[in-house]
């Protein structure tokens, strides 16, 4: 091993898997070996059994579907509103001066703290879940997009002007394409956070979703189900991240060339 020396892709896979093997080994040692009480931590085998039980008999797939729809719904809502505002803020300094102080303030408001208020306003239906994710994502996206657009290379903007572009041409044909890969990365990042918000939203006052299943299992002291639920969240996050990355790479070939 030397600093910054690259590894082969085969090595990467082996090392990456090695961690999980080690993790499960430690877990098995702690649970099968009787070092941790069954009440607090189920062993891997029980976890798998409980998971099968959940999927086959308790309609857990429906819960997974509900959670995914909430994340995507709330996230899409936030993105559709936040990206244009962020672009305008990045492009026009007066708009930035007008909105930036508020957005900077608002993005520190923890989305989970809004849950009681949102239940009051929107009930415990789907709208409330979507709004939690929306609040958690929208300000973050606005601010990061504004910074990215504002950091567009000035010389490219000037080149566009000397080629006869007007203000709208500069926004459409320079600011947007130049910021697009970064914006896609921002969305990928925030989608990851949206997963955290949705589970929190589902832990309180919900009748479906992965978070709801986890609270139910807690009441029954079924740690196997809880762990299975957490692992499912991690897996879905991993898959969506991978898809998002692949999509970005396909969308922006010039970044990789």
């Amino acid at each position: 091993m030397r600093p910054l020396e690259p590894t082969t892709s085969k090595q990467r896979v082996v090392y990456g898997l090695a961690f999980f093997v080690l993790f499960v080994a430690l877990w098995s040692w702690a649970t099968f070996g009787g070092h941790v009480s069954k009440t607090f931590l189920a062993n891997p085998l029980t976890m798998v059994q409980e998971g099968y039980e959940l999927l086959a008999k308790q309609g857990f797939l429906f819960d997974i579907g509900m959670t995914i729809w909430r994340v995507i719904g709330g996230f899409a809502l936030a993105a559709v509103i936040a990206v244009p505002i962020g672009v305008l803020m990045g492009a026009y300094k007066p708009v930035e001066a007008f909105l930036e102080p508020f957005v900077s303030f608002a993005r520190y408001l923890p989305a989970s703290a809004f849950i009681p208020l949102l239940i009051l306003w929107a009930g415990i239906g789907e709208l409330q879940k979507l709004l939690v994710i929306f609040i958690g994502a929208v300000f973050q996206i606005i601010l990061m997009v504004a910074v990215t657009v504002g950091a567009t290379r000035r010389d490219l903007v000037e080149a566009a002007y000397t080629l006869g572009a007007g203000d709208s041409g500069v926004i459409r044909r320079v600011l947007l394409p130049s910021a697009a890969p970064e914006i896609a990365e921002i969305l990928r990042l925030v989608l990851g956070w949206a997963w955290t918000y949705v589970i929190v939203a589902e832990l309180i006052g919900s009748s479906s979703g992965i978070g709801h299943m986890i609270t139910d299992s807690q009441a029954l002291l079924n740690t196997g189900q809880i762990i299975f639920g957490i692992i499912v969240i991690g897996l879905i996050g991993l898959i969506s991240d991978f898809l998002f990355k692949a999509f970005n790479a396909w969308l922006f070939p010039w970044k990789l060339a």
Binding site: D155, L163, G169, R173, P177, S178, A180
Partner: peptide, 29 residues
């Protein structure tokens, strides 16, 4: 304005456009 074309000291091609699209930028505008 487009009546004064400029070539800059630094490299200012649009990285997201191919060579042909870069050259056609002003025409498209």
């Amino acid at each position: 304005g487009a009546d004064r074309g400029m070539v800059f000291q630094s490299y200012t091609l649009f990285p997201w456009l191919t060579v042909r699209e870069n050259i056609a930028f002003g025409l498209r505008e």
